[in-house]
Design a protein around this nucleic acid. Structure first.
Length: 484
RNA sequence: GGCGAAGUGGCCGAGUGGUCAGGCAGAGGUCUGCAAAACCUUGUACAGCGGUUCGAAUCCGCUCUUCGCCUCCA
């Protein structure tokens, strides 16, 4: 089966065909850096990380661009309110650029721990002011924008297709019931800002043909996407809440400027909820990732996210995180067993699982179904290892290769071979390894002598030291337990 | 009010018009000195009401409920 992607623009699954065969341009809306990342960011970037990984696994060369919004945008409606980054700077008594830099690093720290691969290009809005100005000038030239008092607005009426992504095509109807105050300066209430005049004392401002000011929010993504990925990008991703107005405005700006389709496949991921309510910074229910990592292995979070589909909402609770933790542990144990098993004569063919996994991923990145294939695999392998004939060395290495590719390289939920995690790193300490080996040796001698008091004492005291011992067919096995 | 998504067994969560999702938790069992793990067995779930059909959780209609967007937001 060939890859199918659900396209938000057409509202159906479509076969994936990039503009240039074998090459994929992918743009994902990045964070506005004025606070630490929360679980909602994790869902979004883990989801698109897996999209990129699967495309690469499928043989595509992927250029993944994800911006950093480091120009503050406004706290309430499109034209009023305080710049969020400036506000944070005021709260922390520092400079907006320091805020942006600090939270950018914080964001990548968290993403690294979640195993999210860095984008190929991570452009900042402040680093692309000239590109944004050029795009605005082009829109002015073509009559899609107008200037009033140092502000430049996009004229929604000049672009008949406005609303095609969100289904909001009737601009008159849209106005009733809206909470946005009409600004007299704008020709139409739906028009949006491309460039804003800097008011007195505004810290982030740049020179432009319309005076000192700063860019509107929507224009940065259009400018940077087209700069690095061309006028038509294959995949543009982001959170559902950005469909309108953000993505709608991007389409309007870009297509009006180039006359070409802006995006072939729009992908929108759903929200993380807490008790059924959307998690958000402004609502006070967001779960900060750094806090969460204190109690929960980041890989468990990643696994938890991938156990639901990217287009489904994901409800956060202690209970479901715990369930994910147990499930992931099972997967890891299977891999450990495979690595430690003494080769036998049993045969095993992972190809059936490769196919099922691939079909799941090709069907709009159905990671929960793919994960279920991993569990089926785990059960099959464990059953085989439970049998006296075990698995041949070829079967063992094929099984490990399967896990390393699909659970490791593609889903990123187990560390691929040779890549140290905190735990394996600690375990590779030669001294520790020798000490534990010695104790296990003594324990097995005690067990041979049926001295279970001593053997249980060794096991219990090792457990207290954070080392868990399990007896297996092939002898005692040990692992470091994560702090909990 | 407008636009959109969704309601699956104790919990999470896939899915197809007619044999099985899967995970977690629970129960029983195998194995084991005991643990743990693993494996086996075990749950007649598809919001409600109509309709189409030989047959629908899966298609259609209506009703109820929940959520998102319409203001910054992953």
């Amino acid at each position: 089966m060939a890859l199918q992607i659900y396209n938000s623009l057409t509202r159906k699954k479509e076969p994936f065909v990039p503009v240039h065969p074998g090459i994929v341009g992918m743009y994902v809306c990045g964070p506005t850096v004025y606070g630490h990342a929360h679980l909602g960011h994790a869902k979004s970037y883990v989801s698109f990380d897996v999209v990129a990984r699967w495309l690469r696994q499928s043989g595509f060369r992927v250029r993944y661009v994800q911006n950093i919004t480091d120009v503050g945008h406004l706290t309430d409606d499109a034209d009023e309110g305080e710049d969020k980054i400036s506000r944070q700077a005021r709260i922390e008594k520092t400079d907006p650029m320091e805020i942006a830099q600090y939270y950018t690093r914080s964001f990548y720290d968290d993403m690294d721990r979640l195993g999210v691969e860095r984008p190929n290009i991570a452009p900042t809005a402040t680093g692309h002011i000239p590109e944004q100005i050029a795009l605005i000038e082009e829109l002015l030239k073509k009559g899609h924008a107008y200037e009033v008092n140092g502000n430049v607005y996009y004229s929604v009426g000049s672009f008949p297709e406005y609303g095609k992504l969100s289904g909001r095509t009737d601009q008159e109807a849209l106005q009733s019931g809206t909470r946005v105050e009409t600004r007299s300066e704008k020709r139409h209430p739906s028009d949006f800002a491309l460039w804003k005049k800097a008011e007195e004392g505004h810290l982030m401002q740049w020179r432009s043909p319309w005076g000192m000011g700063y860019p509107g929010w929507h224009v940065e993504c259009s400018a940077m996407s087209m700069k690095y990925l061309g006028d038509t990008v294959d995949i543009h991703g982001g959170g559902m809440e950005n469909k309108f107005p953000h993505h709608e405005c991007e389409i309007a700006q870009s297509e009006a400027a180039t006359g070409k389709p802006y995006v072939r496949y729009w992908m929108h991921n759903n929200m993380v909820t807490v008790g059924g309510i959307k998690m958000g910074k402004s609502l006070k229910n967001s779960v900060n990732l750094k806090d969460l990592f204190r109690t929960t292995d980041p890989m468990v979070i990643r696994f938890f996210i991938l156990q639901s589909h990217y287009r489904s909402p994901l409800d956060f609770s202690e209970a479901t995180i715990h369930a994910s933790s147990s499930g992931l542990e099972k997967m890891r144990d299977t891999r450990k067993r495979l690595l430690q098993a003494v080769p036998g004569i049993g045969i095993f063919d992972a190809d059936e699982f490769r196919m099922k996994f691939g079909d799941a991923m090709d069907d709009d990145f159905n990671t929960p179904l793919a994960v279920s294939v991993l569990f089926e695999f785990s059960k099959t392998v464990n059953s085989a290892l439970d049998k006296p004939e075990g698995l041949s060395s070829e079967a063992l290495s094929d099984a490990v290769a399967f896990l390393d590719t699909f659970a490791g390289t593609v889903l990123g939920i187990i560390a691929p071979a040779g890549e140290p995690t905190a735990l394996t790193e600690a375990k590779s300490g030669k001294a520790l390894e020798k000490v534990v080996a010695l104790l296990l040796d003594m324990r097995s001698e005690a067990r041979r002598n049926r001295d279970f008091t001593l053997s249980d004492r060794i096991r219990n005291e090792l457990l207290e030291a954070g080392i868990e011992v399990q007896d297996t067919r092939d002898g005692a096995s040990w692992s470091l337990k994560a702090e909990s």
